[in-house]
């Protein structure tokens, strides 16, 4: 019998995330239920990677789960505060790349090649030797190498491949076998699905395999890449999911963003919204308790379905005689 992939949030995190792991933690459709479960299970010394790390990463750093980031964008550093203080005093180590850089590094990891060239970073101070070894630098890690192409002499910057130990993501749907389907713009997440050693995905819906296999263009990765699938409606809240619900600006503006300004504010947020909520459903109930029973309904997306259906049809028989003459 095939391995059981559908499981609970706590089981998925307990089995497939280890202290010290390098974790790709999502983009756009953020795996917020998984992030909060990492906090509940008190994971430690995680390295967070991704093109642009936003509040999901700030939460994991302030919760003491993560102490390193490799990324093109640290949203928590936009304003001076708890994240910039950690960057300055060494509690949070960091390697600055860019969106394209991280996407390429994940792609190289997914392809199983050691590095990948780009023309990004040329002409910038990122390439200055002194900036390879700054305060937040990870010991023993080489950031990039400028070189001339051995074929035509063009300048290029080589970036090292990036293979997360685990990728956590949220997507629209999956089947019970673990095939993941998604749609909409994808940021750098496509290659994080392929690059990760272990993959945990929360989904809005579990659908029959027939449905998945009837529209295979929408599949992000086949089941063999997936370690765990968790059925978790609103698992990306307060971020949005195309076709399901939109970003919860009110919650982020009034509850989440102020909680990320200082350690004290985060401790209060964590107590109320994570530790006091043993499940994601309990967290969603708390959102409704604060903003009213329709708090999630008002986020619901208007339908925008394709105007024409897609047809993958083929002819079951070729216009050739079936060879019954060959034994």
């Amino acid at each position: 019998m095939a391995e059981r992939k559908v499981m609970s949030l706590p089981e998925a995190v307990e089995r497939f995330v280890q202290d010290g792991d390098t974790v790709y933690c999502g983009y756009l459709m953020l795996p917020m239920a998984l992030v909060m479960e990492l906090v509940r299970q008190r994971k430690r010394h995680l390295e967070l990677v991704g093109a642009s790390l936003v509040y999901q990463a700030t939460m994991l750093v302030l919760a003491g789960c993560a102490d390193r980031v490799r990324t093109g964008y640290i949203q928590g550093a936009l304003r001076p505060g708890s994240i910039t203080e950690r960057m300055a005093d060494g509690r949070l180590r960091f390697e600055d790349y860019s969106n394209q850089g991280i996407a390429l590094m994940l792609m190289a990891g997914a392809l199983g090649i050691p590095f990948i060239p780009t023309r990004s970073f040329l002409g910038t101070d990122y390439l200055a030797p002194e900036n390879q070894h700054h305060t937040g630098h990870y010991p023993g890690y080489r950031k990039w190498q400028e070189m001339e192409s051995p074929f035509d002499g063009q300048k290029a910057v080589l970036l090292p491949a990036l293979r997360p130990d685990v990728t956590i993501m949220h997507a629209q749907r999956a089947d019970e076998e673990g095939n993941i389907q998604w749609w909409g713009h994808k940021g750098d997440a496509r290659w994080a699905f392929w690059a990760a050693r272990r993959l945990i995905v929360t989904v809005e819906e579990i659908v029959p395999s027939d449905a998945v296999r009837s529209d295979p263009d929408r599949t992000a990765v086949p089941a063999s890449r997936v370690a765990a699938v968790v059925h978790c409606p609103y698992g990306a809240h307060p971020s949005g999911v195309a076709g399901f619900y939109d970003f919860d600006y009110r919650f982020v503006g009034e509850v989440l963003a102020p909680a990320l300004d200082s350690d004290a504010a985060f401790a209060a947020f964590r107590g109320e919204w994570i530790d006091a909520c043993p499940t994601h459903d309990a967290y969603l109930e708390r959102v409704k308790a604060r903003y009213g029973p329709d708090a999630l309904d008002v986020l619901k997306a208007e339908p925008h379905r394709p105007l024409l259906p897609v047809d993958y049809g083929f002819a079951p028989w070729f216009n050739l005689p079936v060879r019954e003459d060959i034994p």
Binding site: G72, Y73, N99, Q100, G101, S120, D125, E130
Partner: peptide, 19 residues
């Protein structure tokens, strides 16, 4: 960069769009 007076989020895709 070593000891910034003020740190920001970082480049996102600014580096490649500019270059």
């Amino acid at each position: 960069y070593e000891q910034p007076a003020r740190r920001f989020a970082g480049t996102g895709g600014n580096t490649e769009i500019a270059g």
